[in-house]
Simulated assay, not measured.
Amino acid sequence: MTLIKNKYYFEALDNFPHYLSDCLDSLNYALSYDPEDADSLCLMGRVYSEVLKDYETAKKYFEEAMQNDVTNVNTPKYYIECLLYNEDYEEADKLIEFALQIKGIDKAEILYCKTLLSERKEEYKYALENLKEARRFSYSRTMLDMLEEKEKLIKNKMPKRRTVKKVE
């Protein structure tokens, strides 16, 4: 049974986001075999969040995924992004702190989400601190490049300090 569910989940993942019709067909099959599968629920949440922009429905799928497997390393990142899109900043902050405790999770990705949260709250100093922390946990050139680009963007957003010229 698990093998069949995994087959449909991987088909859905392969079709996401370019072939949504096929993705949803496969995802519905996967969930019919195991309605509590956290990865399938997470992918359904991503469909609602990233494609349909229905954040409330997406949150329900992500919550269910987290309830069914609290240690799933895939769900928190996408759930946090959904919360940020929906401007649920307090919930996002709590989930970030929880996610950083999950063994095996990509801490750089979660700290990047924490950076996004600080940026959205216009707390640029904290955003830069989070980027520095994320850099410590980055193990790929792709992630480092993304962090460097975000750092440049945040620095450009920071208010410029005015220098006062002394009159002699």
Rank of each mutant, 00 (worst) to 15 (best):
M1C: 15
T2Y: 12
T2W: 15
I4P: 04
I4C: 07
K5T: 05
N6C: 05
Y8C: 01
Y8V: 00
Y9H: 02
E11D: 11
D14P: 05
N15H: 05
F16M: 07
H18P: 08
Y19Q: 15
S21P: 13
S21N: 15
D22M: 12
C23H: 02
C23G: 03
C23Y: 00
L24C: 07
L24I: 10
S26D: 03
L27V: 08
N28E: 08
N28L: 06
L31N: 05
S32T: 06
S32M: 05
Y33K: 05
D34P: 01
D34I: 03
P35E: 06
E36I: 13
D39N: 11
S40H: 05
L43Q: 02
M44E: 10
G45T: 03
G45E: 01
G45Q: 01
V47N: 12
V47P: 07
K53W: 08
D54I: 09
D54G: 08
Y55E: 01
T57P: 14
K59Y: 12
Y61M: 13
Y61A: 10
F62I: 08
F62N: 04
E64N: 15
Q67T: 15
N68W: 04
N68D: 02
T75E: 09
Y78A: 05
Y79A: 03
I80G: 00
L83C: 02
L83Y: 00
L84Y: 01
Y85L: 10
N86R: 12
N86D: 13
D88G: 02
Y89N: 07
E90L: 10
D93Y: 03
D93L: 04
L95M: 04
L95W: 01
L95N: 01
L95D: 01
E97Q: 09
A99M: 08
L100G: 04
L100F: 05
I105N: 00
D106Y: 10
A108H: 00
I110T: 02
L111N: 04
Y112N: 04
Y112D: 03
Y112R: 05
L116F: 07
L117V: 07
L117A: 10
E119M: 09
K121T: 11
K121L: 15
E122A: 09
E122H: 09
E123M: 14
E123C: 12
Y124G: 06
K125I: 13
K125F: 15
A127S: 07
A127T: 05
L128F: 05
E129D: 08
N130G: 12
N130P: 10
N130S: 14
N130K: 13
L131V: 07
K132Q: 10
K132T: 10
K132M: 09
A134V: 02
S138G: 09
Y139L: 14
Y139Q: 13
S140H: 04
R141A: 11
T142I: 14
T142M: 14
D145M: 15
M146P: 09
L147S: 03
E149F: 13
E149Y: 11
E151C: 12
I154H: 02
K155W: 00
K155I: 03
K157F: 04
P159K: 00
P159G: 01
R161I: 08
R162P: 07
T163N: 03
K165N: 13
K166V: 12
V167G: 15
V167I: 15
